[in-house]
């Protein structure tokens, strides 16, 4: 195919999208095994809880999803600051990856929550402090994704979303206080006793299993999305290069992930 000798090397340097890479199979199979173990422990392994019965099993996915989701958003905040300081496209790729994955996990938390609440409380939703806070954080990160979709310029996207990422994170503690005060004025339904009151060791093990499985899942998804974004950056830079040199490859090679 190549006749001028320079081309094959050029083509080799084109980055591969993550699905074609070796690590994906390994990471995905480990994650899948952990997820199956977590699922087994949650549905069969752990003993059935006395008062809530079988519905308590929803917690094994519900709680870890929230924790991993919030962890993901925290990494998003760090990546936003990293972008602010270094203006590195890698920081931006990490930020968008963690925002999307965090949103997926928090969506799981927010949908499994009402499904648990219906049989146990008898209601789908209550504006209790923790629920409200989670919902607001979810909404804020949706607006983060929306901003990226609405901003046409690939150069502006990282800068604006880093700014929004920091604004969102600054709102979380204030939200926490506001909602707490708001809800203490109007008493919310009593939920549970102490959170970890008399948790069976096997239940604890099941939660831990799901926790680790979700952590592995988050790492895989974030890395996958991150590498996709790096390829996108490369393509963007290359597209501009191609436009400049009218179809000649290799004239303005900038390597992966570096913006002109």
């Amino acid at each position: 195919m190549a006749t001028n000798g320079q081309l094959p090397e050029e083509l080799l340097r084109i980055p591969q999208p993550p699905a074609a890479k070796n690590w994906v199979r390994l990471w995905a199979s480990i994650t899948f095994a952990l997820l199956l173990l977590g699922l087994y422990e949650a549905l069969i392994g752990a003993p059935t809880e006395a008062t809530m019965g079988i519905y308590q099993r929803i917690f094994y996915f519900h709680v870890p999803a929230a924790m991993i989701g919030f962890l993901s958003f925290f990494i998003n905040f760090l990546a936003s600051i990293w972008y602010l300081l270094k203006r590195s496209p890698r920081a931006d790729a990490l930020a968008i990856a963690t925002a999307e994955v965090g949103l997926a996990f928090l969506s799981i938390n927010l949908t499994t929550g009402p499904i648990w609440a219906k049989p146990v409380w008898g209601i789908w939703w209550t504006w209790d402090a923790r629920l409200t806070l989670t919902l607001i954080i979810w909404v804020m990160y949706v607006s983060y994704i929306v901003l990226r979709q609405f901003t046409p310029s690939a150069e502006l996207q990282p800068r604006l979303s880093a700014a929004l990422g920091i604004f969102i994170f600054a709102a979380v503690p204030i939200d926490y206080m506001a909602i707490r005060w708001w809800r203490t004025q109007h008493p919310a339904p009593v939920i549970l006793g102490g959170k970890n009151s008399g948790l069976d060791p096997h239940m604890y093990f099941a939660v831990l299993c799901c926790e680790i499985a979700f952590l592995a899942l988050m790492a895989t998804l974030v890395r996958f999305r991150y590498e996709q974004e790096i390829v996108k950056h490369w393509l963007e830079a290359r597209r501009r290069g191609v436009l400049l040199t009218q179809g000649e490859l290799g004239v303005t090679d900038q390597g992966p992930g570096i913006r002109s």
């Binding site: 949706v142 607006s143 901003l147 609405f150 046409p152 969102i168």
Partner: peptide, 27 residues
Amino acid sequence: AMSNYARQRSLLLPLLLLPVSVPAVIA
């Protein structure tokens, strides 16, 4: 200023402003 670059700026502004302003709105 942030939504100024967007295609539908008037639509984007409330989508960005309202979620972050929730604590202020409550107060």
